[in-house]
């Protein structure tokens, strides 16, 4: 009886140690995969970089899906990229990281509604995330919806009152909204940041 117990214990230990070993081995492979993909990406070989990760692909791995999203996007495979990013989003729904990636293939495919929806989601999670705010502002500005653009640029400028890009974009938005006083103040502040800023100088000239 005693002997049976011992054997069982040994078998069990053996079983677990096999699992642990296998796991350690897989993680090692995945890390190697990442290592290789970085090297390939750096040398401009995106196809190899993708393959490196596909070889160790695990559907439930957030890092692999996220990186594959980026690599496929970089190599122009927008649908695939979208699908990897979506998987990453599904795995970590509160994360803004995969959403900020997802907008890349969406934008490349001209799916602006989806891009806007993603930025809104990001801002829902992280209301003061200036990159998302700025980009949303840019999208609306591009669509000539200055009223909406103003809302986002205004927030950027309130968060970063001395950031050239934010100042100039809000200034142009106000200019189009015929809020010349605000535009003037903003262009002038932008010039304090970059005294030779062409865009700000052009704006001020238009308002003279």
């Amino acid at each position: 009886m005693e002997t049976l117990k011992k054997i069982s214990l040994i078998v069990l230990l053996g079983f677990f140690s096999t699992i642990v070993y296998a796991q350690q081995n897989t993680e090692k492979k995945i890390i190697e995969g990442f290592q290789n993909s970085y090297l390939h990406e750096a040398s401009g070989n995106l196809a190899e970089a993708i393959l490196d990760l596909k070889n160790v692909y695990q559907a439930d791995s957030y890092p692999i899906n996220l990186r594959l999203g980026w690599l496929t996007y970089s190599s122009g495979m927008f649908s695939e990229s979208q699908s990897y990013y979506n998987k990453a989003v599904a795995l970590k729904p509160y994360a803004v990281e995969p959403r900020m990636g997802l907008v890349l293939p969406l934008a490349a495919m001209g799916n602006w509604d989806a891009v806007i929806a993603q930025y809104h989601k990001v801002l829902e999670i992280m209301p003061n995330y200036s990159v998302a705010l700025h980009r949303l502002g840019l999208i609306y500005y591009g669509q000539k919806d200055y009223e909406k653009a103003e809302k986002y640029f205004e927030k950027v400028v309130n968060l970063y009152p001395f950031d050239y890009d934010g100042l100039v974009m809000l200034a142009w938005t106000e200019f189009h909204l015929k809020k010349y006083r605000q535009a003037k103040v903003l262009f002038n502040t932008a010039l304090m940041h970059t005294p030779t800023g062409a865009s700000a100088l052009e704006g001020l000239k238009l308002m003279q």
Partner: peptide, 26 residues
């Protein structure tokens, strides 16, 4: 000097009533 008011609204509101006022405004 041309007034800066209406540009840094969120900062003005924050000075007056902190995050809550900014939240109410938004």
């Amino acid at each position: 000097g041309v007034s800066e008011r209406g540009i840094y609204t969120l900062n003005e509101l924050y000075t007056l009533g902190g995050t809550n006022l900014v939240k109410a405004y938004e």
